[in-house]
Amino acid sequence: MAVRVQKAPFDLGAEIAAFSTGLAATGAIVTFTGVVRDEDGRLERMEIEHYPGMTERALAAIEDEARRRWSLTDALVIHRHGTLRPGDHIMMVATAARHRAAAFEAAEFLMDYLKSRAPFWKKEYGADGAAWVAAKDEDENALTRW
C-alpha cells in the first residue's frame, strides 16, 4: 500500500512493472491513469495546488478503506501537483486483488473518492484566461453509490 504526492512526473510503465512484481497471490491488477485534456486546444497549462499533510492523510485513509472493503493485496495512488500540460499524466491508481471485479471496483472507488475528498484544486490557464475548475455535482453524487 502506498500513497505518493509529487511534483515530478512518474514513469507509468516502471510504476506498473514495480507494482505487479511479487504478487503471486494476486489474480488481477487494474491500473487507471488520469491525463490532462487539451480541452479542444483551449488549455495551455494547469496548476494543481494541494494541502501538504492533509493530502497524504486523506489519500491514505481512502486507500485503507478500499483495502478493507475489497481485501486488496496491494494498492498504489500517485497524484501530481504543480504545473501540468495537455498530455501529461496527472495521477494513477493501481489495485491488486484475487479477482478482477474487486480490482476494478476498488480502482473506481479510489478515483471517485480522491476526486472529491483529497485536497487538490486545479486552475486552468489558456486562451480564455485563468479559472479555477469548479467541482461537479456528478463527482459528489458518484460517492453515493459506495
Binding site: G34, Y51, M54, H79, I90, M91, M111, L114, K115, S116, R117, A118, P119, F120, W121, K122, W132, V133, A134, A135, D139, E140
Partner: peptide, 10 residues
C-alpha cells in the same frame, strides 16, 4: 484550520 473550495482532484 483550513478553508478551501470543494476539491477537484483526479
Amino acid at each position: 484550520v483550513a478553508f478551501f473550495p470543494p476539491m477537484t482532484g483526479g
